[in-house]
């Protein structure tokens, strides 16, 4: 994380990947405790990763990372359970279906992420897609879109903030 805060994106990527299984485990336990299916666990994992990213400035570097990550994950889990508890489209009958396709869904968010991604404007979508799904470096994306690298970075950052907001239903 320290490397990430210093701007080393490869170390940061490795860190986020290594955190993901633990986050997934926390989300799964939380969903089980309130009797929700597995389908939306990955949405919570992604929302938590976004929060870790956007709020990384609140980590006190003199202290260990674990409790901070856990606190972020717990907040996001509680928040999303509360939100899902309010929405009416969660039915007990759905549980059987979601359990059945739960395994196939591993690592891929149910539907929220696509919906949320679709709420960005075309250019933002293209930037996020080519950097994330196609794994292109920022420089190539900038060249292709005829933008400066800084502009692409700014747009990417805004898009990520928007994604986090949309996840919360904003």
């Amino acid at each position: 994380m320290l490397a990430a805060i210093e701007g080393d994106s490869q170390a940061y990527c490795r860190l986020l990947i290594s955190l993901t299984p633990a986050l997934r485990g926390m989300a799964r336990r939380g969903f089980e405790r309130v009797g929700l299916g597995n389908a939306e666990i990955e949405d919570v994992v992604q929302e938590t990763l976004l929060a870790i990213h956007l709020k990384r400035g609140t980590w006190d570097r003199t202290r260990s990372l674990g409790p901070w990550v856990t606190a972020i994950a717990r907040y996001k889990l509680v928040d999303s359970l509360r939100r899902r508890g309010r929405s009416t489209d969660i039915q007990i009958d759905d549980l059987a279906d979601t359990l059945a396709d739960g395994a196939a869904n591993e690592g891929s968010a149910h539907h929220d992420a696509e919906k949320v991604l679709g709420s960005l404007n075309d250019r933002q979508q293209e930037i996020v897609r080519s950097i994330s799904i196609d794994g292109k470096p920022v420089r190539d994306v900038a060249e292709k879109l005829g933008m400066t690298e800084v502009a692409v970075r700014v747009s990417l950052h805004r898009s990520l903030k928007l994604l986090a907001e949309r996840y919360r239903g904003g």
Binding site: T20, V45, L117
Partner: peptide
């Protein structure tokens, strides 16, 4: 969007 894709986007945004 896969979680690994999201992580790629987040790492590209590190500064």
């Amino acid at each position: 969007m896969k979680t690994t894709d999201l992580i790629a986007a987040l790492s590209a945004d590190s500064y």
